[in-house]
Design a protein around this nucleic acid. Structure first.
Lengths: 305, 305
DNA sequence: GCCTCGCATAGTCACAAGCTATAGAACAAT
DNA sequence: ATTGTTCTATAGCTTGTGACTATGCGAGGC
């Protein structure tokens, strides 16, 4: 059976055309080289060298074989490089799911950064309802999710990649538009627009329990799946809402965002299954963490100014 | 050092995902397979399989490596095929030189046939003066020459690939135009247009000695290198000439070709050096010989009709 | 004609690939 | 739980073969 050894020996001999020198380059002695070349020729059924006892030269077939075995080694080296890169998470494929409500904040930052640092990774991004995200991670359908911290995390790894306070959004001409900070107690009686508990349990529970803690039972007049839609509907005068601060980035002129007293902090996390061995997960998470540190640093810089 | 054996084992295991079955397919027992896979992983520095004691599956890197090693084996198989084809003379490069005077007869027939049968051979055709052809063969500059049989053939192999009688060409309005066959004795006093002895010794000597045998000393009034030019000049009334029959194929309306009594036969041969090991020479010569047999068969068919 | 060069052959050694036997983990069935 | 089954890994031995040294032998050079 022909092995890479035979091809290695052949190529060095083809380059030197001298058994002694080739053997020296290969760190073996001359007789085994003679023997291995003879075995190679026998296995191929083709004479690769014309050799008198004095001179060695390539046959036509040998010349051809020299060119072609170059491709064999290129392919082999490429295979090794790719395997290493893939194992390190520098190359491969990564499916990332994200909640639409992070599309104005951390998701673009993180994914742009990752794509720039790891161009050999084929990054597949898909907007997904929070409800489905955890399921996709469990099933292995997606590798990483960017979502609000889920309540049940058994078998999952999470890391915080974004934190922001919740704010209240007010419709045009609302009685509280003049205020700097709003106490939730003042929101009693307002119509609240909220995501359904089924779709985004963490977010829903956070808002409800925050209100209850401040003595208000929110009057949920409208259930809407997406944060963006909620803000739009507030703009249409359908009610008020408590949403993550980054929703301001929608820059909808009809709405007003106001800080809340003792505002709850919402946490966006990257989530992955700890027995999912796609090595790109590690590089992605590392990159996302760094992106968050950069954002935090930029914010404290802003505050100082 | 990683050998093809490791890659072969890896690929079968990657396909079966079962050490026992893979080992059986490879006609080895299971323990050495485990060991060789472990050695491969160690040499690469990459885990290729996730294996519990119970289940085997590919890692990301392993999946990638499986794809890439496919290319390694493709390249290797290609190299083997090409080496075999080259050794058999089915592929490669062949330089063929030919005299322009065969451009109306055997050269197109032979080369078209060869190109059709051996499409993988890169055939390099070059028109060459007979003088230079032998030299090109000796020096290895060309592999095969198509030419009139040379006088000195030491170190050369030759094979006849075409035979044709010489004919006399007459200018417009010549006194002998009405004759069916011409006796060379009747050509006494005519101006002969002949190739210089230096350029095509075989052809020159054949014509001169033929004339002498028939009691005529040819009056060489014009020396012209190429047969085609000679026929053209006969058409211009510059003299008469004795040329190979296939020169009729020029279809020059001003000239008249007449058979000669006891016409000498000119032989076109393929010539190659017997220590030139280009395997395409063998296939080319074989093909040329067959082409000649076909032409002969077609001729005797014509005569019968 | 002798010497040198350089590839091939002969004979020996050692390493590693392969074998058998078995341990030990994971899962299934009772 | 317990036992059986199914796999992979490990241990220890055997053997094939790649590599080494010594030498043969033909081709050129002096």
């Amino acid at each position: 059976m022909i092995e890479l050894r035979h091809l290695r020996y052949f190529r060095v001999l083809a380059e030197t055309l001298h058994f002694g020198k080739a053997a020296e380059l290969l760190h073996i002695s001359q007789p085994p080289l003679s023997r291995q070349i003879a075995l190679l020729e026998e296995a191929l059924g083709v004479k690769l060298f014309d050799r008198s006892r004095r001179r060695v030269e390539l046959t036509e077939a040998g010349r051809r074989f020299y060119l072609d075995t170059g491709a064999v080694f290129s392919a082999f080296e490429q295979a090794k490089r790719n395997a290493l890169a893939t194992a390190r998470g520098d190359a491969g494929e990564l499916s990332v799911g994200f909640m639409m409500s992070t599309a104005y904040s951390i998701t673009p930052t993180v994914t742009r950064r990752y794509a720039a640092h790891y161009p050999q990774v084929n990054l597949k991004l898909a907007e997904t309802l929070p409800l489905d995200l955890a399921e996709d991670i469990y099933s292995g359908n997606k590798d990483v999710a960017i979502m609000y911290r889920p309540q049940d995390c058994t078998g999952l790894e999470t890391i915080t990649i974004f934190r922001e306070p919740m704010m209240v959004v007010l419709p045009p001409g609302h009685r509280l538009r003049g205020r700097d900070v709003i106490d939730p107690a003042e929101l009693a009686g307002e119509i609240f627009i909220v995501t359904p508990k089924r779709i985004a349990p963490a977010l829903h529970d956070m808002i409800v329990s925050y209100c209850l803690q401040h003595g208000v039972t929110p009057n949920v007049g409208l259930e809407i799946n997406m944060q963006q839609s909620i803000v739009n509907l507030v703009g249409e005068g359908m009610g008020i809402a408590i949403v993550p601060r980054s929703m301001r980035n929608m820059r909808l002129s009809t709405t007003t965002f106001k800080p809340l007293k003792n505002a709850p902090i919402i946490e966006v996390v990257a989530v992955w299954k700890n027995d999912n061995h796609n090595p790109c997960i590690a590089t992605f998470v590392e990159s996302a963490e760094q992106a968050w540190r950069d954002v935090e640093a930029a914010w404290s810089e802003e505050e100082r100014c």
